[in-house]
Design a binder for these strands. Structure first.
Lengths: 185, 185
DNA sequence: GAGTACATGTAATTAGTTACATGATTGA
DNA sequence: TCAATCATGTAACTAATTACATGTACTC
């Protein structure tokens, strides 16, 4: 599917950017919620996109010697990207989840040990959720206008918060069920 | 992390099973919600686990000639698995999501085209959610006792339903926001 | 001068998918 | 006898991670 290709095209289509800054985007609070790649995957893909004529770069100097490559989109790259944007794709398999794999095999763990894991998971997901909600506060409850970058940020941030909220709810139900059945505190 | 290893150990620890039936488990309505692998990944991993002494198999005959390998857990395999079960792991990166990647780049799509995608996504997720809820009906609202296989099935099924429900909610909010902003029907 | 961030790349390995390959059994 | 399912494997490829590798620029 070469999804990384389209993630890169999208970022570059927004304006000239270096590979280094693309990686920083992937690590950002917003984008890390749905796509990311390490620099060791990004640099080779940028090279490939250049060979394919979807992007081009010019070398600019930072200071005396340090060269960096500033990538921009080409007309064919832009066309390729907007074509992909309109594509309606099947939802595919549900994502893998390590904790759910353990939850599936609860016949091999004591209720005490499982409860510890549940509490730990809840703590971690609650924390992540709070971080996301803090980021969301910048919008003060106002939905940015469609077509702006802020709209995209807002939408995916909202989705991420809702996801963490649901995950915590699920863990809460699991904790309640377990306590009721075993009488554990 | 070799997670497939532990998925296989867990399934084999429940009782003797063939590679073929393991793959069927992965394709099942319950397990497909959090882990899965193709037969081309399963068979080599089973071989490796055998070499490592975590599982063993005996060849049994199906009919006249057809041989199948029935895998069972070894004491060291069981030990390895229960040790893994108790391990509390960090929640790690959030799973990648193709549709959210597109939602992030809505500055490159018309509201009409985006609305079409939103509706299509909602239809597909609603359908999956309904399938899951139909599977859930077997439990008639009664939580199975902890420690049984049914408890694991129930827990992960509940999580899967909650996940699809939240996803549909997110899509609904996106649809409402878009309609309000653009006046589209 | 030291430490951190900037900046870009490759190599080796692991994980996972698609395609290739073969043959037996069962039920209509 | 035909089709679907059972049953197991390998080969080639794509995706992604970890480790290796190098050097500059900025700030304290």
């Amino acid at each position: 599917m070469r999804t990384l290709k389209y993630a890169l095209l999208g970022l570059i289509d927004r304006g000239p950017i270096t590979g280094y800054d693309i990686v920083k985007e992937f690590e950002s609070r917003v984008m890390a919620n749905f796509w990311y790649a390490k620099h060791s995957q990004v640099y080779p893909e940028l090279k490939r996109l250049t060979d394919e004529g979807f992007v081009e770069y010019k070398v600019i100097l930072q200071g005396e010697k340090m060269e960096k490559k500033l990538y921009s989109i080409t007309p064919s790259g832009h066309e390729e990207f907007v074509k992909w944007m309109k594509k309606d794709e099947p939802i595919g398999v549900t994502p893998k989840d390590l904790f759910r794999l353990r939850s599936y095999f609860t016949d091999f763990i004591s209720p005490e040990d499982y409860l510890k894991l549940l509490h730990s998971q809840r703590r971690m997901h609650t924390e992540r959720c709070n971080t996301l909600k803090a980021t969301m506060e910048a919008y003060k409850g106002v939905v940015p206008p469609f077509g702006t970058r802020e709209y995209g940020d807002y939408s995916v941030l909202l989705g991420a918060i809702m996801r963490e909220d649901y995950y915590v709810s699920w863990l809460n139900v699991c904790i309640d069920n377990l306590k009721e059945q075993t009488g554990l505190a």
